[in-house]
């Protein structure tokens, strides 16, 4: 592996540095903008002209911008979705990876196929369904974050089962066979052998699902109509989504606050994430 280290590293640094600049550019601008009280996105100068915390203060004081509630909603719904969908996905992945049953292959195939259906065009159908649920129990229907949560985990089976199955397939068969010989039941094999082994991958799947949910805004903007109940994605989009009027300052400030926890989470799990992403592909 390590032959001729440092022999020709110049191109590596050039590539890496240009990518660092490319990556840094929008991040830099958004930071500058967040401290610029005039609300434009870098008006005529790339260097910071004015400095104030106005945009940040606005997020926590303006009653029309309940940023804290948005953040809370996003965190609740993303965490709940992440945990539930990993539980559902792991159980399904285990069944598909280790158990033999009728309809297994066709089941796997149809899961994949339905998953690639451009599902948000069924928005209207989902909307009508959730309206009906709203009539029965408002706390689970249209307008509630728990209703949205139900829809999100509806898709969990397809995505996560496939991702996790790839990893579970790499766990040697001998491991569960010997456990079975020792008298373990199938659920025991699952809970005591597979879940601990898969913990890092499960964590990664959970993080990816968390980020995915955090990012989602089409369904969320349709469902969460009350200002207080929105997620960060929907709430912030309003600042700059207008056709003629855009306020970048608060958007930038809100984005930075919302990104920080995700970035920390991501960086600290970086090692696992690399493993998790390639688990399905590089086996064998």
């Amino acid at each position: 592996m390590s032959k001729k280290v440092g022999s020709n590293n110049a191109w590596k640094h050039i590539l890496a540095i240009s990518l660092v600049l490319f990556t840094a550019f929008p991040i830099y601008v958004v930071i500058v903008t967040s401290f610029d009280p005039t609300g434009g996105i870098s008006s005529n100068s790339l260097l910071p002209v004015k400095f104030s915390f106005d945009n940040y203060i606005l997020l926590f004081t303006d009653s029309r911008v309940p940023y804290l509630s948005w953040m809370k909603n996003s965190l609740i719904i993303a965490s709940a979705t992440a945990v539930t969908s990993v539980l559902i996905g792991a159980a399904a992945a285990f069944a598909f990876s280790r158990l033999r049953f009728r309809g297994r292959r066709i089941g796997l195939k149809s899961l994949l196929l339905i998953q690639v259906f451009p599902s948000f065009l069924s928005l209207s159908a989902i909307y009508v369904m959730m309206e009906q649920v709203f009539l029965v129990t408002p706390s689970l229907g249209l307008g509630s974050i728990w209703g949205l949560y139900l829809i999100y985990i509806g898709g969990a089976l397809g995505v996560n089962a496939w991702l996790l199955k790839g990893f579970l397939d790499t766990i040697p068969l001998e491991l569960d066979e010997s456990a079975r010989l020792d008298g373990a039941s199938v659920p025991q094999v699952y809970w005591l052998i597979f879940l601990p082994l898969a913990a890092p991958v499960l964590a990664v799947t959970a993080v990816l699902s968390f980020i995915g949910t955090f990012n989602e805004f089409i369904l969320a903007s349709l469902f969460l109509q009350d200002v207080e109940k929105r997620t960060v994605a929907v709430g912030l989009q309003q600042f700059v989504g207008g056709q003629y009027e855009q306020t970048w300052g608060p958007f930038a400030a809100g984005s930075i606050i919302a990104s920080v926890p995700l970035v920390i989470l991501f960086l600290s799990l970086q090692r696992f994430i690399i493993g998790g992403l390639t688990a399905g592909a590089t086996k064998g």
Binding site: N215, V232, A233, G241, F251, A252, S255, S259, L265
Partner: peptide
């Protein structure tokens, strides 16, 4: 790691 809807809007 940065939420993509934010980066795209930026």
């Amino acid at each position: 790691a940065i939420p993509s809807f934010m980066s795209i809007l930026i």
